[in-house]
Design a protein around this nucleic acid. Structure first.
Lengths: 242, 242
DNA sequence: ACTCTGTTTTGGTATGACCAAATAAGAGGC
DNA sequence: GCCTCTTATTTGGTCATACCAAAACAGAGT
């Protein structure tokens, strides 16, 4: 017979001093008292200001770092970062990277990307404004110009795809794009440069663009899927080459 | 030049001892030496085992907690959690919650959800197996049965939507669903219960299901969008009631 | 203005200690 | 034996102090 209530929200637990300090500092960052790029006060100053031990001060700072609110390199003063979905997601990147081990893990993430991006091109095809289309056109042009310059091509490739996310003007989706790039790119950069591949990818981008410009959502999605599936095949070889 | 193999007291290494210990513990969790549900060894035991100070041991444990690898309630022994996208995303939840402040922030996340879920129903309509369809049918039935029980309806509502993600058998998308629910629900639960609303939502679910069963991707997406947009209007009132 | 150098500051780590809450162990009652 | 209450022990949270090496700073010299 359980006597205690189910509600396990134990607010009765006295909060830890480190957590309190963490909240205080986080609010200072949010409210701009600590601006982006600023260095955090020295630990000993935090100790004096808030009347806590260095242990607590350090734990609070570490908590800030782990949430992407400050950038803390060893032996350097932590620097305030702007709170954003991107920075928050970045902090879990190393764990995500572990979860992505092996081909199937990467494939899962890549499929998620295909799903999202497929929806984005559909949306673009049906609702993109002329201004947005021309923005995409510029990105496509830049991509074409870089066919013979693999590093630059890689860059313009990502930029092209990013436009698809930017069109939504949705910071959550923007962050999603960054997450895809950050977590997928380690596997992509292993591919040896190849101009022919660049050319093929550019043509795929062009086909996607055409479909969007024509307002053909189905074709846009299909060409995008074909493009990404092909890209996957290219990367796949960097795993087990059997 | 001699490279010391044993961790000696001198820290001439550039990397921090806490980071090293963190990695060590993380690998132990990954490799199952520390199983899910297990409690971490007492801090003083970690100190003895790895020859580090308690400061370092505590920082490492905190790092584990901040990445969702252990569940560390104040004053309790940290409990090992299974590494997963869900647990990783959970740790940034509090920062995300801040970013979501105001109607527009929530709207952004909700739009991302609409985009993803729209793609999911399309996929379901065109590729769902009979087994998956019947799974969805069961969820729909459970949802119908709960129309008069708002808490239960809320639960079956989420379950219905989750099936859409489960069909992909993609852990990344599963985690995405959990993130949407976790981050959006705080705003949803503010709505007063209303049987009529439940009924309307159930009917929307049924319409979506029909479209999927018919293999009509366009209709599935349209009905889903209508459903979510309606849900948004319901929630919207909980913000500023201009 | 720039590089080199000595001094001060600051982050990383180690110790040791204390408290209060959690847990384990023991005692007593049914 | 099983359950509850009490006591002893363990353990997490916090503080204070100290030392080292790297970083930031301040001058001196070119």
């Amino acid at each position: 017979m359980a006597k205690d209530q189910i509600s396990d929200t134990k607010q009765s637990d006295r909060e830890r001093a480190a957590d309190r300090l963490f909240l205080t500092l986080m609010e200072m960052i949010e409210q701009g008292q600590l601006k982006e790029g600023d260095a955090l006060p020295p630990e000993r100053e935090i100790v004096a200001t808030y009347g806590v031990s260095r242990t607590v001060a350090r734990e609070a700072v570490q908590a800030l770092a782990n949430r992407g609110l400050v950038d803390a390199r060893p032996r350097f003063r932590p620097v305030v970062k702007r709170p954003s979905y991107e920075n928050a997601l970045e902090t879990v990147g190393d764990v995500i990277a572990r979860l992505l081990q092996g081909e199937s893990g990467v494939r899962n993430l890549f499929e998620a990307r295909m799903l999202v991006e497929g929806a984005l091109v559909r949306k673009a095809a049906s609702r993109a404004t002329p201004a947005e289309v021309s923005k995409l056109a510029r990105a496509l042009h830049a991509n074409k110009s870089a066919v013979n310059d693999s590093p630059q091509f890689y860059h313009t490739d990502q930029a092209f795809h990013r436009i698809l996310y930017e069109i939504t003007q949705n910071p959550v989706l923007l962050a999603t794009h960054k997450a895809f790039v950050d977590w997928l790119s380690p596997h992509w950069v292993q591919m040896p440069p190849a101009t022919e591949r660049n050319q093929a990818n550019y043509e795929a981008h062009a086909a996607i663009f055409d479909a969007i410009q024509d307002g053909d959502a189905d074709r846009a999605e299909d060409t995008l899927n074909a493009h990404l599936e092909e890209a996957w095949d290219q990367v796949r070889g960097t795993f087990n080459k059997l």
